[in-house]
Amino acid sequence: MSTLVTGATTPLGQRVVEMLLESGHGRVLAVGFEPASVVQFDSRVVYRRVDLTRARQVRELMHGTVREMNIDTVIHLAMHRSARFDRNKAHRLHVDATRLLLRLSESHPTVSRFVHRSSSEVYLSRNDQPDVLREDQPLNLSVKAGQWIRDRVEADVTVCARMGLSPTLHVNVLRCAEILAPDMGSQLHDYLSSRVCFRPLGFDPIVNLLSLEDASRAFALALHAKEPGVVNIPGADTLPLSAATRKWGRDSLAVPGAWMGPMYALRARLRNSEFRYDLNVWRFHFNGVLDGARARRVLEYEPASPVQWPEPVFG
């Protein structure tokens, strides 16, 4: 078995590559945007620098190294990580690159499995939606959703739309809970980087958080998924937003909801931070916890590794 991992230079990508090597999974082709000189991988890993927004580079990769290495599985983890990213480039990376990779995989002579990383942000979060989100819950197709969310939904739907259409390609979409780690495009991680974290007065939703360890294990398990389809990947930590803030060593302060948008817009402007309240407004009001029943059945995945909370500091 040999695997192509895109987004391999992200913390999740690195951990997935390590896990594949540890499990004796065969050869790994790691793809990232960074030059090979600044990337450190095990000698068993073949690294290629590829800009996935460039169709020619993707084609060369798929028809060149992927074919030569006899890659049979593509784990597509690449995703734009900054809410301040150039809009067109973000769309090209997230949606167009995903579509191209999938199309090339469908007609590829060696690739037989495609695993796409999606996120819980694609689900519609509203007062009339359930607290526990199953895979068949509505997606956030609202025109009011920011591009950050729309791109994620479009990439997810693009992959879902191809499921079952190719007789040879086994497709899985893993909708991961928020991965609370730096450099992962986690809005919540940036939110928690403030000393004082504000939340809307009178609301304290339940959030579910996924550790890097569990996320990477889920992707490793997806290589042996029993059936294609969408699978939620919940994390081991389920707790109110205020409790997560305190466990992260921050102060949680409730302020009128109408203040939140301007306050965080000002913070983003002054501190060049990533967190945008307009992208998170509903999940700062309503519970949204991924249901992991299908992950248990299809992947035999159970969340096992809690988030590494910082050590409490006293005095």
Binding site: N127, D128, P130, L133, R134, L201, G202, F203, H285, F286
Partner: peptide
């Protein structure tokens, strides 16, 4: 009812005490 989760503080009291919004997904779970 669906409007209960929109009510500040009331939603918290309900949620912590075990009340849930009336959606089929919640029933199933």
């Amino acid at each position: 009812d669906h409007f209960a989760p929109l009510l500040p503080w009331v939603n918290l009291l309900f949620s912590r005490a075990g009340a849930v919004g009336g959606s089929r997904g919640n029933f199933h779970a």
